[in-house]
């Protein structure tokens, strides 16, 4: 259990919960990235069986990078900016416990990247996904999206930057389930408990095997 100014985390019945709490849009920052890393590190040490990641409030899961923070980037700090984002994604991917994103609202840009690195996603009817990088002259989630959905869908989402509502995201397979907002945490917890009930070592090995199958070493 812990918290910092923009992140809260706790454990209950073998399931770890992490909440990004940076209103109104839960945009990414150094503070909540550090919070997520600390929470996930703690869960790994404590042998948590499954993790639920969500955004505070009912408006956004994660609105992505903070354009104001990003405006101050220089060629020297860009590298670090990209690396910090990657560190959270890699930690999610390498955690023994599967991570379930509970998508409670807007999920855009770097927020979509974060959601797509999770092992699976469940959404509320308020979930809205957008690969919005193209709208601001950038690129994000190209690789993840192009691998997760058929190419025509990846091209549609990435080139228009349009919003995918919960029903469409479900049809595309980006969400595994969609429930009313007030049931989202219960639904995500049910998925987490289902995973937590399996033998932990087998789940961890299955996750590692999936990671390897989907992401062979460079050159392999």
């Amino acid at each position: 259990m812990g918290e910092n100014a923009q992140t809260r985390w706790w454990r209950q019945d073998g399931v770890g919960y992490v909440v990004i709490d940076n209103p109104p849009m839960n945009v990414l920052s150094d503070v909540n990235r550090r919070g997520m890393l600390e929470a996930l590190g703690e869960f790994q040490r404590d042998g948590v069986r499954a993790v639920v990641l969500t955004g505070a409030g009912d408006r956004a899961f994660c609105g992505g990078a903070d354009l104001k923070e990003e405006e101050r980037l220089t060629p020297e700090t860009v590298q670090q900016f990209l690396r910090r984002g990657q560190e959270v994604n890699r930690t999610i991917r390498e955690l023994d416990a599967p991570v379930i994103a509970a998508i409670n609202g807007w999920t855009m840009g770097g927020g979509l990247v974060l959601a797509l690195w999770c092992d699976l996603r469940v959404g509320s009817t308020r979930a809205k996904l957008g690969a919005v990088g193209v709208k601001v002259g950038l690129m994000a989630s190209n690789v993840q999206l192009a691998r997760l959905v058929p190419e025509a869908r990846a091209r549609d989402a990435l080139l228009t930057g349009r919003t995918l509502e919960a029903a469409e995201a479900l049809a595309w397979g980006l969400l595994s389930a969609v429930v009313p907002p007030e049931e989202l945490l219960r639904e995500a917890t049910a998925w987490a408990r289902r995973i937590a009930a399996r033998p932990a070592a087998l789940v961890a090995e299955a996750k590692r095997a999936l990671n390897r199958a989907l992401e062979p070493e460079p050159g392999a």
């Binding site: 193209v134 950038l138 192009a146 091209r155 070493e217």
Partner: peptide
Amino acid sequence: RPPLAVRAARRAIARVRDLAPA
């Protein structure tokens, strides 16, 4: 949309399946 970003996205999508994820 900004033309450079559209062009870059199309190029990147076309390459995804030919490259190792990393």
